[in-house]
Design a binder for these strands. Structure first.
Length: 743
DNA sequence: TAACAGACTTGCGTTTAGGGCG
DNA sequence: CGCCCTAAACGCAAGTCTGTTA
């Protein structure tokens, strides 16, 4: 019985497929980078080969074939033909008496479906009162970024000067700071679908070539030394790199690894090496550790040199010119080969991620731009000029057969404007949410089962910020679920229960959720729900057993289709964005004390942020060193207390001019102590909650910026450099206007 | 029209680097 | 001034959702 009693968080250490060594690079034929965008069209002749891309590997794929339970009966008609007059079917006889107000609707005809995904709600469900369209929102909230111009070109943040670079001899550092900033949010929007007009870049940076092990480092099989062929040896180093991780002891992992490894062996090797248990990687592991030590022990100069080289790579490959503007690229390095480690009980764990070569890579760039050169002696799989997509390069990853992309950094226009749009959609939802809630509450008692399920699911999505829950391919991924894919075994119903162990009182109609969500993170929660919802759930669970879908007549496509009919651009995930942002805003209002000092205000901010993270179930592993470092902090606090005492005594005995000084010192110590205590609280409360994801992906940055502005908290205390770059649009919009931003 | 492929966002764990401290 | 430790950056897996295809 899976999820219910599986408390483990699956916090496996992640892969680490560095092959240890790593200084020699595949010379990437691209030497010159800084060409401006050329005017002459360069029709590449090596274009395409259409046949190639059609060659898709077969997909076994049987979606969602999870141990199909019995009940094959199809029950077509029941939903639309649902007969209201029939009070209740025989099978509902056990329905308990009570039911006052809401006992009406006969839910008889409903028989669980095997979820054949029938889309019955073609047409938008009109007729409802809150049909008001979406496009007429302009009225207030949406302040178009027209506003002022110029003034603070860059450094929009309130108080940035703190950024003192201690020593300033590094000429490089200096000029990096003053790059032109593309204030795209002050420009007109491009017509839909077109992502850019010109695009130029230098292609990907490939993984360093494999450096064979020196001769004195041996792999052993069955106790005997064996010199492996380069391919097999490289693969052995992958395994050596993870041999200390717990997952390398999992059967699935080892079986998969062995399978792929053997493919890379010479026939001679394959004949010999048949049992992983007889493989001895210890020398390789030792060698890798050695190498690591050597790296660590490098002189300052050597380290500086490496750093320099890295920086040069960024200069050479890390920038694209898009519509005449230089923008950072997020991931210009192609992922190195290694062993795949999915999260949770991933069926593909242990398979080998193959090395990507230019022949695997599709390059996307402007028609008239300089086409990046493939490394010497190689060619691209394809060069295309598709300005309806935002990626610069793509390739197919070998384990799951999924596409991977090189894209621009979050600070780019292309990403930023999308992000801005996301929050604007969430703000539009804010205006609609009242009506939408009324609607789904009403739908809880719909006669149509699919609508009732839809309404119930939507309620959870809204209330609990659950994810949509798309169907997943069973043998390509771990068994995780979201709202629409919840199964019978993922919830428990209690007529009455405590929400928390520590609660005194029990609540009525409690639903307990316990399932693995994205990344196999456990979602465990008890919530009290309306009676109506409770009854619905009971109904949905009738005649089902573990393995059956809770919402058998609902899927994400249907749900999103419905949502779109309620508001333009509305999808399930907008609810997460909306609820996250509105929660932060409300919590900030509630928790901020204007008289607090900055540290205390930041604590309040973090607390507000934490509420959001809890809502979104953003967890993190309690790190090994947590208790230890907490103890250290405690010690610090103790020490500081002593200092305060000391200062206090000094103050008492001080007189005259000394007095003032002593007072100052005392106050200072006191303040420091306070800060430490705040730190402790914050740290403790943050033990297993991760604030980062919500800050980066869910909370409208304008709320944060506005808060900093209002309460005079330096923005950089809350937003890192990366945040500030990503959210430049938000900072500018919020800082350059007088009215307070309200989400 | 359902399954798929593609594109893009979200999310966690790991690695790295820089800020505070002895 | 170097060390240490944490916060920030990075890497890449795993979601969502849309557009296309058989």
């Amino acid at each position: 019985m899976s999820a219910v009693d599986s408390h483990h968080h699956h916090n496996h250490h992640n892969n680490h497929h560095s092959n240890g060594n790593g200084t020699v690079y595949d010379s990437n034929g691209n030497d010159e980078i800084k060409q401006e965008i050329k005017e002459e069209p360069m029709l590449s002749d090596d274009d395409v080969t259409f046949g190639e891309m059609m060659k898709k590997k077969e997909k076994k794929s049987k979606k969602n074939k999870r141990k199909a339970p019995e009940s094959g009966e199809e029950e077509e008609e029941s939903e639309d033909d649902y007969k209201p007059e029939k009070r209740k079917s025989s099978k509902n006889g056990k329905k308990k008496a009570g039911g006052s107000e809401d006992e009406e609707e006969s839910e008889d005809d409903y028989k669980p479906e095997k979820k054949k995904s029938k889309k019955n709600n073609k047409k938008k469900g009109k007729a409802s009162s809150e049909e008001d369209d979406d496009d007429d929102y302009s009225e207030e909230d949406v302040k178009p970024p027209k506003k002022k111009a110029k003034a603070e070109k860059n450094k929009p943040s309130t108080s940035t000067p703190a950024k003192n670079n201690k020593k300033e001899p590094s000429k490089k550092k200096v000029k990096e700071e003053q790059e032109e900033i593309w204030e795209w949010w002050k420009e007109e929007k491009k017509p839909d679908g077109v992502k850019w007009n010109t695009l130029q870049h230098c292609g990907p940076l490939f993984a360093p070539a494999y450096i064979p092990l020196p001769d004195h480092v041996h792999f052993k099989y069955n106790g005997h030394r064996m010199k492996l062929s380069p391919a097999a040896e490289e693969c052995a180093t992958f395994y050596a790199g993870v041999v200390n991780h717990e997952y390398s002891s999992q059967v699935q992992f080892n079986t998969n690894f062995m399978k792929d490894w053997r493919k890379l062996m010479t026939s001679g090797e394959r004949e010999k090496i048949t049992d992983l248990a007889k493989c001895d990687f210890t020398h390789i592991v030792e060698y890798q550790n050695e190498q690591r030590e050597i790296r660590k022990a490098m002189t300052k100069e050597e380290k500086a040199k490496i750093k320099e080289e890295k920086a040069q790579e960024v200069v050479d490959y890390g920038i694209a010119i898009i519509d005449g503007h230089k923008e950072k690229i997020a991931n210009f390095r192609i992922e190195p080969p290694g062993v795949f480690r999915g999260r949770g009980g991933h069926p593909k764990m242990g398979f080998i991620k193959k090395r990507i070569v230019p022949e695997d890579v599709i390059v996307n760039c402007g028609k008239d731009s300089v086409i990046p050169k493939p490394p010497l002696g190689h060619k691209w799989k394809e060069v295309r000029h598709d300005n309806t997509v935002s990626w610069l390069c793509s390739w197919t990853e070998s384990v799951l057969g999924q596409n991977k992309y090189i894209m621009l950094n979050a600070s780019s226009k292309i990403k930023g404007s999308k992000d801005y749009e996301k929050y604007e959609t969430a703000r539009r939802l804010k205006k609609k949410i009242g009506g939408i809630r009324e609607r789904y509450i009403a739908d809880w008692k719909s006669k149509e089962m699919r609508i009732r399920q839809r309404a119930t699911a939507l309620y959870f999505i809204d209330k609990l910020a659950l994810r949509a829950g798309n169907e997943k391919d069973v043998d390509e991924s771990a068994d995780t679920v979201g709202c629409c894919s919840l199964r019978y075994e993922h919830i428990k119903l209690f007529e009455s229960a405590k929400l928390q162990e520590t609660d005194k009182k029990e609540k009525e109609f409690v639903v307990e959720f316990d399932f693995l969500g994205k990344d196999s993170i456990r979602y465990f929660n008890r919530v009290a729900v309306e009676k109506r919802v409770f009854k619905n759930l009971k109904l949905f669970m009738e005649n089902k057993k573990a393995g059956d879908d809770l919402f058998d007549r609902l899927d994400t496509a249907t749900l999103n289709e419905h949502l779109r009919s309620l508001m333009d651009g509305l999808t399930v995930k907008v609810f997460r964005t909306y609820n996250a942002s509105i929660t932060l805003q409300e919590q900030l209002i509630k928790l901020t004390n204007p008289d607090d000092n900055v540290a205390a205000k930041i604590l309040s901010y973090n607390r507000a942020n934490r509420q959001v993270a809890i809502l979104c179930n953003h967890q993190r592993a309690v790190s090994k060193g947590f208790d230890e470092s907490m103890a250290k902090l405690e010690q610090k606090i103790k020490d500081k207390k002593a200092e305060v005492k000391e200062a206090e005594a000094a103050l008492k005995s001080a007189r005259g001019a000394e007095k003032e000084k002593a007072q100052k010192k005392y106050d200072q110590k006191k303040e420091q102590l306070k800060k430490l205590k705040i730190q402790r609280t914050d740290k403790d409360e943050n033990k297993q909650i991760a604030l980062g994801t919500s800050k980066l992906n869910y909370i409208d940055p304008r709320i944060t910026v506005a808060w900093c502005k209002k309460f005079e908290v330096p923005l950089e205390r809350v937003f890192t450099k990366t945040h500030r770059e990503k959210f430049r649009w938000a900072i500018d919009m919020t800082m350059t206007t007088d009215e307070e931003f309200v989400f």
